[in-house]
Design a protein around this nucleic acid. Structure first.
Lengths: 221, 221
DNA sequence: GATTTATGCGAATGATCATTCTCAATTTAT
DNA sequence: ATAAATTGAGAATGATCATTCGCATAAATC
C-alpha cells in the first residue's frame, strides 16, 4: 500500500506541508535519503553501511531508492560534496573585514564550534579517509578546499601588501599548515574532550599571532 | 602441494633464513600477514578489503590464514596497535634533553618526516575514521596516545617548574591542541604536497615558541 | 617409527551485498 | 477519460562476503 498521501490538485495548498510540485517533492526525497544515508555512514562507515540499511533508515524500498540515486557511490559523492560545501562556508563568511588575527581566530573558532555542534567529526574523518583512495571524493575535497584556500590567500596577501602583517614564512607554507591544523582540530573535536572554548581561543590566538606577525599597522582596532 | 620448504631438523641452520624455530616461523607468518593486510587496507580500507584479497596478497589460503588470526577484526586491531605503537615511538624518543622548543620542533619534524617516508598517512586516516565507531580501535588509539601525552606532559611540566617556559595556557589545553595539530599534519603529509621541510620547520618553530613562551632561562643553548 | 600436533589447501557455507526486474499505483499530460 | 510518465514496493539476481570444514602433509614428540 503506497503512501502517496494528500494533494490531489489545488486542495493540497491548504496542507501544512505547503505546495509540493513535482520537482519540490523530488528534492525533499533526495534530502531525506541523504540525511538517512549520513546517519548510516556515520554509524558504519561508507563501506560498512549497506543499501538495505539506508533503505530501512529512509523507510523506502531499494527499487524506490534507486529512482533517486544510480548507485551507492553516487550517494557517497553527494554527501561528501554537501558536507565539504557547508564546511567551507563557515570559513568563507568570516574571512572578510576586521583585524587579520581577529578574523583568523574567529574563523577557526567558528569552525571548531560548528564541528562540535553538528557532530560531523566522524563524517569528516570518514570522508578524509575515503579521499585517500577514491579519486572522486579526493576531487570533491580539493574543490571545496580550493575556495577556502583562495579566500584565505587573498585575505592574507592583502594584509601583507598593506603592511599589516609580516608572516614568519611564505603563504604557500602557512596556508597548508593552517589547513592541516584545522583538519586536526576537526577530527579531534576538542570541546567534546573537555577542552574549554576560551582557553582554546587563547592558544589559537597565540598561534595566529606568531605565524602572521602583525606589525601593529592594522586598519582595524 | 604444500610449501613447507627447507629445514628438516638441524640442516636448516646453514640456510640464509637462519634458524626457524616453531614460534619464530609463526611470528614470521604473522608478520607477513600483517604486512599484506596493511597493503590491502591502504588500498581499499578496512571494510573494503576482503579476506580473500588479503589471502591473495599473502599467498595463503583462507584456511591457513585463520590459523593465525581468528577474525578480520583481529587483524585490524593488530595492525592498528602496531601502527600506533610505532608512531608513538617517534615522539617518546625525542622529548628528552635539549631546549624545550628545540625538542618540540624536533619531535614534530621527525613525525612529519616519518609519516612522509613511511607513506602511512592513508592508514592513519583509516585508523582514525574507524576509531570513531569501533571501540576496540578507539581504545588502542587512546592507549598509545596516553604514552605520548604522559611524556610530553612531564617534559613540559618540568620545563615550567624550572622556569624555562611560561605557556600561554595550561597544559590541559596546549597538549590536546598540539596532538590535534600533529594529527592534522599526519593525514595531510605536507611534504608530499610540495611544502618545503625547512620552511615548514620555521612555521612550526614559530608556533611552538608562541605557545610555550620560553623565558630565556633555558638550561640548554 | 609411531603418534600427536601444527600447518596448509581449497571447496563449501549461509549470509549479505549492490543492483535489477516486474508490476502496481499515482500523477501529469492529452 | 485516457494515455504517458513517474514513483513506489518487494522479490529476485548473481556476486561476494567472512568464516568453517574435511582432509593431507610436515614437524615435533615420544
Amino acid at each position: 500500500m503506497p503512501v502517496f498521501h494528500s494533494s490531489a490538485g489545488e486542495a493540497a495548498l491548504l496542507d501544512t506541508e505547503a505546495a509540493t510540485s513535482r520537482t519540490e517533492r523530488r528534492d525533499q526525497q533526495v534530502a531525506r535519503i541523504l540525511d538517512a544515508a549520513k546517519t548510516c555512514f556515520v554509524r558504519s562507515g561508507f563501506q560498512g553501511a549497506s543499501m538495505q540499511q539506508i533503505c530501512s533508515e529512509v523507510g523506502m524500498s531499494p527499487g524506490a531508492l534507486y529512482r533517486y540515486f544510480p548507485s551507492k557511490e553516487a550517494i557517497i559523492e553527494a554527501i561528501t560534496e554537501a558536507d565539504r560545501r557547508r564546511d567551507a562556508e563557515i570559513f568563507s563568511v568570516l574571512t572578510l573585514g576586521g583585524d587579520v588575527v581577529d578574523g583568523f581566530v574567529a574563523a577557526a573558532m567558528a569552525h571548531i564550534r560548528y564541528m562540535h555542534e553538528s557532530g560531523n567529526a566522524p563524517l569528516f574523518a570518514e570522508i578524509r579517509a575515503e579521499s585517500m583512495r577514491n579519486d572522486a571524493i579526493d576531487f570533491a575535497c580539493k574543490m571545496s578546499m580550493k575556495d577556502v584556500d583562495d579566500s584565505f590567500r587573498s585575505f592574507l596577501r592583502g594584509a601583507v601588501d598593506r603592511g599589516e602583517i609580516d608572516p614568519c614564512a611564505d603563504l604557500d607554507t602557512i596556508l597548508p599548515v593552517m589547513v592541516a591544523f584545522g583538519e586536526g582540530l576537526a577530527i579531534n573535536d576538542l570541546p567534546a574532550q573537555g577542552v574549554d572554548f576560551e582557553r582554546l581561543e587563547v592558544v589559537i590566538r597565540a598561534i595566529a599571532t606568531a605565524v602572521l606577525r602583525p606589525t601593529g599597522r592594522s586598519t582595524a582596532s
